[in-house]
């Protein structure tokens, strides 16, 4: 048969190709190994691991969580712009509850996440039942969400010292930041829920050819509403982390522009914006790529105002490499001698 030296590992990268985001991430790490001494240094203090790599995981956790929800939405051919604002709502609700209500922490978390999931459901209904384009439907909550958060906090920045809520974004578990556990847990549950049931297949069918999926008897409306609700849930968790990080509910800043980072992470990770095949692991790699890039630039002293430029270049490069057509073009430039 074919003489393919990569035949064994190829399936790992097939479907939505994981190869390019992984290569991009490795390139960045190699760059840091050369130019940023101490990048890979890890230190164990009080049983907690510290170091730049740990920071990347910790700080990237919010985008990773958003990207998990966003992946499923993008798989159905949609997009959710409201996740950043939902983070602000989650932060506002949690901060108000911990400072003003004598509720058990589980009830506070439950209420917060239920509210963001309901907001996500509203997005889903606008998209699937009313038929508004996803970008517009979720833009509504993106704009209105911060206002809602402001209403909840009465326009104030609410600070808190509530130990369990502070733990969410700053605590450690198994030597690593607790946020890592949250990401792994969400990733694990979502992977199982999509791949060990038919949910993943339904998502891909709806995104790839919605009409055909409906003719097969798939309840396409329900599928869409569920993914938007789930994305709201993920945004809720990310919002709790962001608020906990700064021990305050800052409605105008929490999660700002993070919806775009999440979309970048998904696209860089290899899930096409047109919907269909998706890869959760790819999106995580994409989120890590973006966070590593941000940290790298911070370490190199690139002014924050300029930072988006190199970020944009990396994103364009990875997206181009994802494209089959572009790769064929490149190989046709360089690959003549092989033929």
């Amino acid at each position: 048969m074919m003489n393919d030296p990569f035949a064994r590992i190829r399936p790992w990268f097939s479907g939505a190709s994981l190869l390019w985001p992984v290569l991009g991430l490795l390139t960045l790490l190699v760059f840091n190994a050369i130019y940023a001494p101490g990048f890979f240094r890890l230190e164990l203090r009080d049983g907690h691991l510290y170091g730049t790599l740990v920071d990347i995981l910790n700080q990237g956790s919010k985008v990773m969580l958003l990207a998990i929800g966003m992946t499923l939405i993008i798989a159905t051919g949609g997009v959710d712009l409201s996740v950043g604002s939902l983070m602000a709502i989650a932060g506002a609700v949690a901060a108000v509850l911990v400072t003003q209500a004598a509720l058990p922490f589980a009830a506070i978390v439950g209420t917060t996440l239920a509210l963001t999931a309901i907001a996500g459901t509203a997005n889903g209904l606008l998209v699937a039942a009313v038929g508004i384009q996803p970008i517009i439907a979720t833009l509504i909550l993106m704009v209105a969400g911060r206002g809602i958060a402001m209403l909840i906090t009465d326009g104030q920045i609410i600070t808190f010292e509530h130990a369990p809520l502070v733990f969410v974004g700053n605590g450690h578990l198994f030597a690593l930041p607790f946020t890592v556990t949250l990401v792994l847990l969400t990733l694990g549950v979502t992977s199982l829920a999509t791949r060990k049931t038919a949910i993943g297949l339904f998502l891909e069918s709806v995104g790839d050819n919605e009409k055909a999926a409906r003719y097969c008897g798939i309840n396409t409306t329900l599928v869409k509403v569920v993914v938007y609700a789930f994305s709201g849930l993920c945004a809720g968790v990310a919002g709790l982390i962001a608020t906990s990080n700064i021990k305050a509910a800052d409605s105008s800043r929490v999660g700002e522009m993070m919806e775009l980072d999440a979309i970048f992470a998904v696209v860089v990770g290899g899930t096409a914006l047109t919907g269909g095949r998706f890869t959760l692991v790819g999106s995580i790699v994409g989120a890590l790529l973006i966070q590593t890039l941000t940290t790298t630039m911070y370490n190199l002293g690139v002014p924050p105002a300029v930072a988006p430029v190199p970020k944009a270049i990396v994103i364009v490069a990875v997206c181009l490499l994802q494209s089959e057509k572009f790769r064929q073009q490149i190989t046709s430039w360089f690959g003549r001698r092989q033929a």
């Binding site: 297949l201 891909e204 069918s205 050819n209 055909a212 999926a213 003719y215 097969c216 798939i218 269909g276």
Partner: peptide
């Protein structure tokens, strides 16, 4: 436009209605 789910495999396309 009303039949195949283009990027899914032959197997997945076959079992889709049954799974649904």
């Amino acid at each position: 436009s009303e039949g195949i789910i283009p990027h899914l495999s032959v197997r997945e396309n076959m079992i889709l209605a049954m799974q649904a």
